[in-house]
């Protein structure tokens, strides 16, 4: 004959266990099974409580990990921002516009040009033209091996915009590869003044300014706003 397993208040206790499990399923981990009687059902009651405690601990761990990850993500985003800012600063510094002579600005460009860099260069140059009142600017790209169509268009844009301001923008140091790109783009070459070398561009500029007459350099021949101010 089989032993009959009897539990005290079985029905009530089982209903209680059901309630607790329902609460846990709903998200409440504070509940525990209350057991007042010590019998074989107690094992199950205690096991359920242990399970709930394990769950609580697991949840805490995963919450902690989530917070740590969010912290790290925030740091990385801030670092990214810094990097972007530094890149922008670097771009500005890498192509400084310098006034090398009365009424002559030079922008020497070194390295690969991308669209963004060319855009910043253009804005800097135009701004400098207005600030210094120089009507001749030399964009020297001897240090630039190739350009893509976007950059070539930006360069053309720079020259055209400079002309709208009332200044002449000369491009010097165009490599054969770049010359090919410009022609393939169908860009009207008469629109840009080009010189083979920076030296040629300088000589051209000085002659235009009447600073070079019969091979002799005329100093203070060109009265820019600065020299007038300093008088």
């Amino acid at each position: 004959m089989e032993e009959q397993i009897k539990f005290e208040n079985a029905q009530a206790r089982i209903e209680h266990i059901e309630d607790v499990l329902t609460s846990v399923a709903a998200g409440n981990l504070e509940v525990r099974v209350e057991s007042t009687v010590e019998d074989d059902l107690t094992g199950i009651e205690e096991a359920i409580n242990i399970l709930i405690e394990d769950l609580t601990w697991e949840l805490k761990q995963s919450k902690k990990m989530k917070e740590e990850l969010e912290e790290k993500l925030k740091k990385i985003q801030e670092q990214q921002k810094t990097i972007i800012q530094q890149q922008e600063d670097l771009l500005e510094l890498s192509s400084p516009v310098t006034k090398v002579w009365d009424n002559i600005l030079i922008l020497p460009v070194i390295g690969t040009l991308d669209s963004q860099r060319t855009q910043i260069m253009m804005e800097n140059l135009l701004q400098k033209i207005v600030e210094t009142g120089c009507t001749i600017a030399i964009l020297d790209i001897t240090g630039v091996p190739t350009v893509d169509t976007q950059v070539a268009n930006h360069l053309l844009k720079t020259v055209t915009a400079a002309r709208l301001l009332g200044a002449d923008c000369i491009i010097s140091g165009i490599s054969p590869a770049i010359a090919q790109t410009i022609v393939h783009l169908g860009i009207d070459l008469s629109a840009i003044r080009t010189k083979a070398t920076l030296q040629d561009a300088m000589l051209y500029a000085m002659k235009k300014n009447n600073q070079l007459v019969d091979g002799k350099i005329q100093v203070d021949k060109y009265e820019s706003e600065e020299t007038v101010k300093n008088k």
């Binding site: 207005v130 009142g133 844009k157 915009a161 709208l164 301001l165 009332g166 200044a167």
Partner: peptide
């Protein structure tokens, strides 16, 4: 002409040929 204006005009495609301009 302000630099930003010059840039925008060129991008608009309005290059105003035949118009004389001066810096100041």
């Amino acid at each position: 002409m302000q630099p930003a204006v010059a840039i925008t005009l060129v991008e608009l495609g309005l290059e105003m040929p035949g118009v004389n301009t001066a810096l100041n």
